[in-house]
Amino acid sequence: MELSDFNWWTQFIRWGHIISGIMWIGHLWYFNFTQTPTMPKIPAELRPAVVRFILPEALFWFRWGAMFTLGFGLILAYMNGYILDAIKLGIGSPSPHTKATAIGIGMWLGTIMWFNVWFIIWPNQQKVMGTVSATPDEVNAARRMAGLTSRVNTLLSIPMLYCMVFAGHYY
């Protein structure tokens, strides 16, 4: 295989997309399946250790995982030539367009989730961690908004992964 082989490069980008995606969704599920349900059981004097040390580190890998997943995904869709068909969910594309419909729904779900991470969860978590100043009421509101949006992303991750796997393995 030549290094100029186009397929070799698309596989490389796909590999980056999946590794970044595991980093992102792995942390999303850690927050929702492990950290959030466990916090009420942790003695109050130990909770600052989670919020001050584990949370900032986890949020770093979480949000940049989301960014690189989106970036690699868009590059991959462009390189494979289906980005426009996917954006319009295959509607109006030459038939059969099942894969474009599936990957398109997955892309839209993933993009909504990426937006939620960078523009809702992250700004609110900065208030919770105290890196952005806020009143106690604002911190409580931020904790609620970040938590609910994180749950929305957990919900959306289930059909999003269905679409991604469907599109990659439907023949």
């Binding site: 399946f33 419909t101 469907f166």
Partner: peptide, 30 residues
């Protein structure tokens, strides 16, 4: 909606339901 999202089990079930809906939409548009 908030009550549903506050429940992890409810969130997962809603995710499976939404997946079925998405699968039907993919089938319908194919």
């Amino acid at each position: 909606m908030e009550k549903l999202l506050n429940s992890l089990t409810g969130t997962i079930i809603a995710g499976f339901v939404l997946t079925v809906i998405v699968a039907v939409i993919i089938h319908a548009l194919a």
